[in-house]
Design a protein around this nucleic acid. Structure first.
Length: 210
DNA sequence: TGCCAGGCCGGGT
DNA sequence: ACCCGGCATGGC
């Protein structure tokens, strides 16, 4: 599947961001949100000179909410960014390296303890900002697995994650590229309540009704 | 015009 | 341990 996707789309060069803090912030902003809207919010943060976790920590929540408004669910996301930046500041001195240095398993547990950081956001931060080999599973990935009969309808986040990690060597660059390719496939051919057409995975088993 | 988007939380069974 | 409503903007 990876080879088919890479052949069809080419390398995706993810995560799309200039700095590591921008990656972390984008991971929260993109929760259940189209990336085009995230870009608007990121640009607003950049113009306001707030596109860093220390800057988030020093910005009032309501001011932050107004800046990220284009991303949608902006009050919720302002709260989540504040909780993340505040937690990183108090627990790790605002140093992402200190978090990542605790190791993948510990850092993942740490992140999951932060309100607003669920499994996908945690894994995206660990993989794309921390370069730690943890596979990111999103709604597209779940839908693709199910439509191509590669997982059952009951496969939850951890199970789908284990499916990929069990089949691949623990390589962060590979994981990152694979997830990006799955998102690209999802955006182009595997959207919710839409038929897949000209799917690059057409050779694999497929059930369009899922 | 309604449905969807690179989720997650809190309250209720 | 699940299930569900809420959160909210912009694109198609």
């Amino acid at each position: 599947m990876y080879d088919l996707l890479l052949g069809a789309f080419g390398p995706q060069h993810w995560w799309p961001s200039r700095t590591r803090d921008e990656t972390v912030i984008g991971a929260v902003l993109t929760q259940n949100t189209a990336w085009t809207n995230v870009e608007r919010a990121i640009e607003a943060l950049r113009r306001a000179n707030r596109l860093a976790l220390a800057g988030i920590d020093a910005t009032p929540e309501d001011r932050l909410a107004e800046l990220i408004r284009p991303a949608g669910t902006y009050r919720v996301k302002a709260r989540r960014l504040k909780s993340l930046a505040g937690w990183l500041g108090s627990r790790f001195g605002g140093d992402l390296d200190a978090l990542f240095a605790t190791g993948l398993a510990a850092a993942r547990r740490e992140l999951l303890g932060v309100s607003g950081i669920g499994p996908e956001t945690a894994d995206a931060i660990l993989l794309y900002a921390g370069k730690l080999p943890t596979f990111v599973v999103d709604a597209y990935t779940q839908r693709i697995l199910r439509r191509h009969l590669l997982s059952g309808a009951d496969s939850d986040y951890e199970r789908s994650k284990a499916l990929f990690e069990g089949a691949l060597s623990p390589d962060g660059a590979l994981y990152g590229e694979y997830h990006a390719l799955l998102v690209e496939l999802g955006k182009r051919h595997c959207r919710k309540n839409a038929q897949c057409e000209r799917c690059p995975l057409a050779g694999l088993d497929h059930d369009a009704d899922l």
